[in-house]
Design a protein around this nucleic acid. Structure first.
Lengths: 346, 346
DNA sequence: CTGTTAGCGCCTTCAT
DNA sequence: ATGAAGGCGCTAACAG
């Protein structure tokens, strides 16, 4: 009748066999019940199973299930820097959908370190995650390329990765940059510096950079410059660049356009150091909404990204791929949202 | 010689058996090699294994390994709110050590929702995480209690949980609060309001609350009050409370002591709304260091927590428990670090 | 030193 | 509608 063997005793763990014994049916029936194949079970059997499961407090082991069926219901998330608010905001949206779908999120922070990234990817792979959400810097590790090539569904967030053919979810950088630049120009700023960390290799920065240049080229009345900061922590370099920009006696109204939230913060700090006032000495508009945007000086104008939606979309897209969607990679871009505050006031 | 069966073909996955075949040894030897039992292998065997593994690109399956040996090398982290910078900062420290030890972190965000917390705990348990780091609100879910009772190592961060006997890692709230209060008093503030979200049930807030009261009781020259904000988003309530405090014509110099970073932000926002100036109308000192602390008004004084160290210690402590440490629960408390800025200047 | 033999907990044909 | 049997990939006694 039942599958031999006494209801395992030693370990406190209750397995499918214990339930089978208790309910007086076979393991197969339990498995069917768990798998939702209700149509193949008599009402009586199902009831007994339900009761036994409840009575014994049985919970299936994902590990065993994963080993057998290959479905781990695990999603990996690889993030360059968890301390970056953008990453966390996206993570937040992604995690919510993940849990809602019965999946669990495995998080790896690389700290912008290649060795870490490799380790993390290996770990993620060894656990057979069913899909991967990646938010790292421009240079894709060979291992990631291999993993993608191997067929594991991957969705990129915010940044394309060279050599990786995968879906991308992020901001419509071209449109957002245009909106931002126009806001500044219309606000009377005619000399605008776009400020960013190293552009090279980070697609979102490249896109914003290109969009900025082309937008300003289309604005005859305004002049555009680019300030690139290889090392954001290098205050001396930052101060020097800022002083040069602000002190250039062009007589035009000047503004900074920060390519990201971390840059915005550094700019505000630098302006304080240099005694430059917002918005009179320098206007400022920063990508990424910041919780403290309205408490700094006259308030910092920002271009907010729908981070929750981005995270949600990334996960949603990943699930489609996991479900078997084999279309060519696509890009899902969200519009930004300008929040005007005192730093760009007239 | 080898364990029968042809080198599995169908699935691209390379298993221990393929390696065994290729190397011409038994699966056991491979397993020994993987397990680091080098002493039990002849040099020649080991070499052949090494080569085969490299040639085939074999990587062991954590899933299978976990199922068999019970060691999943997975650590669960349950967080009330990933959007809270404190949580992320601790997570950062914890994740680093986790990876360094060859473990992988499974992250669950509850969004302060009991149902989510339950779901997450079930998931974490079904994956057989070897330990749990928990940072949630005061009321421990019955499921968590059950899990702890079941013997799974758990370390609490920042907040004790009723009914949970587990290690706690966090800030030395009593000492930190005393330092903060004294700083204000010595700065000439003689009417101080401690401001917090709902105190009841959140141990760190309770500790800070108690320490604040006792510290001020010991300061004859100063008066202490408590402002509790059940709903931090309720601006009307906050503004009302603040106006009442600031407008109380006691003629004394007044200051706010914010119990956490999120409270600090709301206080700064409220003061702007009410047109109150820092530090003249109201002094301000907030727990938790904030990236923007120096850009708001004259700079916000903060009491920084060593979040990285806290995360590291929590994970370290957890590993000790996993390793078998059965001592009674202990508390590991870190000192805070006062950073004086303009908001508490004389 | 090395291999054989059993499973870990579950799912899945294939019978019945 | 229900079972029995055979693995998934790996480890852990036992033999040699």
């Amino acid at each position: 009748m039942t599958t031999a063997k006494p209801p395992s005793s030693r370990t406190g763990k209750i397995t499918i066999r214990d339930v089978a014994c208790d309910a007086g049916v076979s393991k197969t029936s339990i498995s069917r019940y768990l798998g939702g194949e209700l149509s193949a079970l008599s009402d009586r059997t199902r009831e007994r199973i339900e009761q036994s499961i409840a009575r014994l407090g049985y919970r299936p082991s994902q590990m065993a299930r994963a080993l057998k069926a290959g479905r781990t219901r695990l999603i990996g998330m690889l993030v360059a820097d968890v301390l970056n608010p953008y990453s966390v905001a996206v993570l937040h949206g992604a995690e919510a959908l993940c849990r809602a779908r019965g999946y669990t999120l495995v998080l790896c922070n690389t700290g912008n370190d290649d060795a870490c990234e490799n380790l993390s990817l290996q770990a993620l792979r060894s656990y057979n995650v069913e899909g991967l959400i990646v938010h790292t810097l421009g240079t894709a590790s060979p291992l990631l390329a291999e993993i993608v090539a191997g067929g594991l569904p991957v969705v990129l967030v915010d940044r394309r990765l060279r050599g990786i053919e995968a879906d991308l979810v992020g901001l419509d950088n071209a449109a957002a940059t245009a909106v931002a630049a126009r806001h500044l120009v219309q606000g009377g700023f005619s000399d605008i510096a776009w400020v960013s960390e190293s552009v090279q290799g980070v697609s979102s920065r490249e896109d914003r950079h290109a969009a900025f240049l082309s937008e300003l080229a289309a604005q005859p009345a305004a002049r555009g410059r680019v300030i690139e900061l290889p090392h954001l922590e290098d205050n001396v370099a930052l101060d020097t660049a800022l002083r040069a920009f602000a002190g250039d006696g062009s007589g035009q109204r000047k503004a900074l356009l920060a390519a990201s939230g971390v840059v915005t913060l550094q700019l505000v700090l630098a302006m304080r150091r240099l005694g430059l006032a917002l918005p009179d000495d320098l206007g400022l508009l920063g990508f990424d909404e910041l919780p403290w945007a309205s408490v700094a000086g006259p308030g910092i104008s920002t271009l907010a990204q729908p981070t929750d939606a981005i995270g949600h979309a990334a996960m949603s897209c990943l699930f489609e791929r996991i479900a078997g969607d084999r279309q060519p990679p696509r890009e899902i871009l969200f519009p930004g949202h300008l929040i005007a505050r005192g730093s760009t006031a007239i």
